[in-house]
Design a protein around this nucleic acid. Structure first.
Length: 106
DNA sequence: TGAATGACAACCC
DNA sequence: CGGGTTGCCATTC
């Protein structure tokens, strides 16, 4: 059971960032990774989600690929996004509209 | 300790 | 636009 304080700062940041994603918005892996301190750490974000999403109450379904598509193509994820107001077209989402840009001054 | 893994990104054709 | 290849880097075995 890894606490945020025990995991690496990068992981803790990723988790914190995901928690700031508001309803009806989404973020890409690369964006989260960059905000967490590793612009090339998109893959770690994916791994973190896999590893921590069940331990943390992370809205992982708000995290999508940079192409604006859902990764797992899971019906629940798609449904959850739509319920939040995100228009999902065949697993694709219009990032121009739904991508969330958090403030550095969180 | 070292090597493999991975819910990706970017680039190239 | 679509498919394939390379790069990245923390986590896990």
């Amino acid at each position: 059971m890894e606490r945020d304080e025990l995991v690496s700062p990068f992981t803790a940041q990723v988790i914190a960032i995901i928690r700031t994603i508001p309803s009806g918005k989404v973020m890409t892996y690369g964006q989260i990774a960059a905000l967490a301190g590793s612009p090339r750490g998109a893959r770690q974000v994916a791994r973190i989600l896999h590893s921590m999403s069940k331990k943390h109450q992370l809205p992982w379904y708000r995290v999508i690929s940079s192409k604006g598509e859902i990764s797992l193509k899971d019906d629940e994820q798609k449904m959850a996004l739509q319920l939040e107001g995100v228009e999902v077209n065949n697993w694709s989402i219009n990032l121009s509209i739904y991508q969330y840009y958090p403030d550095n001054n969180a």
